[in-house]
Amino acid sequence: MARWEPNAPERLAQAALDLFTERGYENTTVIDIAQRAGLGKTTFFRYFQDKREVLFGRGAVNELITNAIAAAPDDATPLEAVAHALDAVGREVFTPARREFTARRRAVIAAHSELREREALKNLGLIASMTTALEQRGVPDLTARVAANLGALASAIADERWAQATDGDDFSKLARQALDDVQASTSLC
């Protein structure tokens, strides 16, 4: 690939995933990733701190969720606001074109404890972003925290279902179903 081609972050992410799959995470360097993407090391570090971060989206999802919760209808309950955010994530992040990448990414993360740890930290950041966004809507702290945790759980369940789906279900539909399932299961506790 020529260096002038657009979408450097996406090219780097795809190159990293390919190399992590082929060689293993431990046996892949930042220089390997940049070269595979047809870019230089400096370009890599313009977008990512290290090779772990190339798989974690640079915080864009948290911003998307925060904005979507803020844009939810004024009369939305906390969980409806979270569902509104999950719809936005489905439209912007979990697109049909990303299904294969997401499934491969999940496999790479599952195989490496360092990446599983980073994924757990990312999820904590997601919960914190949702909590803050809900509190900014006037939701009391405890209610915001519970709704955010339920939303993160629903998002994780939807992510698993979406990556494995063969019937073309979109992420938003699966996320809303997962949120319904999570709500229903809380009544059993």
Rank of each mutant, 00 (worst) to 15 (best):
E160N: 15
E160V: 11
A148D: 07
N149C: 12
S155W: 07
D141G: 04
T143S: 13
D167W: 07
M130T: 04
I157P: 12
A148G: 10
L134I: 00
S155L: 09
P140M: 00
E135I: 04
A152K: 12
G151V: 02
A158F: 08
S155V: 01
A147N: 09
R137I: 02
E160I: 10
D167G: 13
G151K: 12
T166F: 06
P140G: 01
Q164H: 13
T166L: 08
L150M: 14
A154C: 10
T143V: 08
D141W: 03
T166S: 14
D170E: 06
R161M: 10
T131N: 09
R161S: 15
A152V: 10
L134K: 06
E160S: 15
L142I: 03
M130I: 03
A163W: 03
Q164C: 12
I157C: 11
P140F: 01
P140W: 01
L150Y: 03
L142G: 08
A156N: 14
E135K: 08
Q136N: 11
G138C: 02
D167Q: 14
T132M: 05
G168E: 01
W162V: 07
W162L: 10
L142C: 08
M130S: 06
V139P: 09
N149T: 11
Q136L: 06
I157K: 14
A148I: 01
A133Y: 00
Q164G: 13
V139I: 11
L142A: 10
A144I: 00
S155T: 09
A148M: 05
D159C: 15
G168K: 05
M130K: 06
M130N: 03
A158Y: 09
S155P: 08
A165C: 12
D159N: 15
A154P: 13
T166G: 15
R145T: 03
A165Y: 04
A156L: 12
T131H: 06
P140C: 01
V139T: 13
P140T: 00
Q136E: 12
A163D: 05
D141N: 05
Q164R: 15
A133C: 01
L134M: 04
L150I: 02
D167V: 02
N149E: 10
E135D: 04
L150R: 14
R161D: 15
A133L: 00
W162Y: 14
R137S: 05
L153K: 13
N149D: 07
L153Q: 14
D167Y: 07
T131S: 02
D170I: 00
D159T: 15
G151T: 05
A133F: 00
A165M: 04
T132Q: 10
G138E: 05
D167M: 02
D141C: 06
V146T: 12
T132K: 08
I157W: 12
I157V: 15
E160Q: 15
G138T: 07
L153M: 13
D169T: 09
L150F: 11
T132R: 11
N149K: 07
L134N: 06
T166A: 13
R145F: 01
D141I: 00
A148H: 07
T131W: 00
A163M: 05
A154G: 14
T132C: 05
P140D: 04
G168Y: 00
T131F: 01
D167H: 12
A152C: 13
E160W: 09
G138P: 08
A163R: 09
Q136A: 04
R137L: 03
D170K: 05
L134G: 05
P140R: 02
D169W: 01
R137K: 10
D159E: 14
A148C: 04
T132V: 08
